[in-house]
Amino acid sequence: MDKRDFIRSGQHASVIGLGTWQLGADWGNVDEKEALAVLNAAAESGVTFFDTADVYGDGRSEETIAGFMRGRPDLHVMVATKMGRRVDQIPENYVLDNFRSWNDRSRRNLGVDRLDLVQLHCPPTPVYSSDAVYDALDTLVEEERIAAYGVSVETCDEALAAIARPNVASVQIILNPFRMKPLRQVLPAAREAGVGIIARVPLASGLLSGKYTKDTVFAADDHRTYNRHGEAFDQGETFSGVDFATGVEAAAEFSALVPEGYTPAQLALRWIVAQPGVTTVIPGARSPEQAHANAEAAKLPELSQETFTAIRDLYDRRIKSQVEGKW
């Protein structure tokens, strides 16, 4: 699989990575055997970038990745984790002592002395503009606890604030055919600055797979049930902030645009990969088959201009008014 660069850190990632939120919690149950099978399928398909967080299953996702990597010493996978969501979300908690403590825990969970990439996990907005926060992150690099750092953001303004900082290696942001606002300013700014873009929620929490109807019911412990209106965390993380009924209808239109040889999910991933400035996209997978299919999207033929235009038209007609004013 093609690899792209995190220019500021000199690191590389497969253009399609693997998001591992679902291996920890909040997407229904995935047992350890299934989780390891997903990781193996992704690696065998050429994926060299795993994204996780200390809060996914309260460390379970990190520990599962560590167990997998111990059994596959032949692999060279960049593992990015996140920190900051295990405490009250106030700027005062984003200080060096806490960073060291969170970092120590993730290093133990992942079984490494130095973490490849650590991202602030959608902290309060003022954190992105704090000189002290970036000084503390620089200290973690100097202490060789981490190789590089980035941020995960909810809004385009937060992304632009982070990109302006000289040592931010990456910005993780929601980007998919139902969330196009980052194309206007964030991706061009990141390209200009040499900041990597990690595209998350690429399938709009599964909407863009085309598998759901208005009557689809998700498990009680699935965030697509309990966070549909932002009850637990930012609403934009669930269905990209799109109303479920609207999203199902729009997803049906999206599925009608799928070229021969593609699935709807692969079309969404191929569209993201084609956006200038994207370093890697991190779909989740709950089965080896999904992991293989996601990775295959990188090898599919380029999309036609007609398809790009039709996807843009769908977004403008059905989705834009719901999401652009919020994120």
Rank of each mutant, 00 (worst) to 15 (best):
V186S: 09
W102P: 01
E144G: 05
N109M: 04
E158W: 02
I174F: 04
H76R: 10
F68N: 02
S45F: 05
D26E: 14
S240T: 10
T213K: 02
A189F: 09
G210L: 03
D221Y: 03
V258I: 15
Y212K: 08
E34G: 14
A43W: 14
Q275H: 08
A162W: 10
F218T: 05
G241E: 15
D31G: 06
L187E: 00
A295V: 07
R100Q: 08
G236R: 12
T64E: 02
E324I: 13
S130I: 08
V30D: 02
L23K: 12
D26C: 00
T263A: 10
W27I: 14
E44D: 11
A13E: 02
V112R: 09
T81S: 06
R184W: 06
Q322F: 00
Y226A: 08
G196T: 05
E306I: 07
I7P: 00
G28Q: 14
D243E: 14
R86C: 13
L183G: 02
A159H: 03
A268F: 07
T307P: 00
T48K: 14
T279Q: 03
A232W: 05
A13W: 02
L257W: 05
R312Y: 04
Y128D: 06
P202A: 11
S152P: 00
L303D: 00
N93P: 01
L183Q: 03
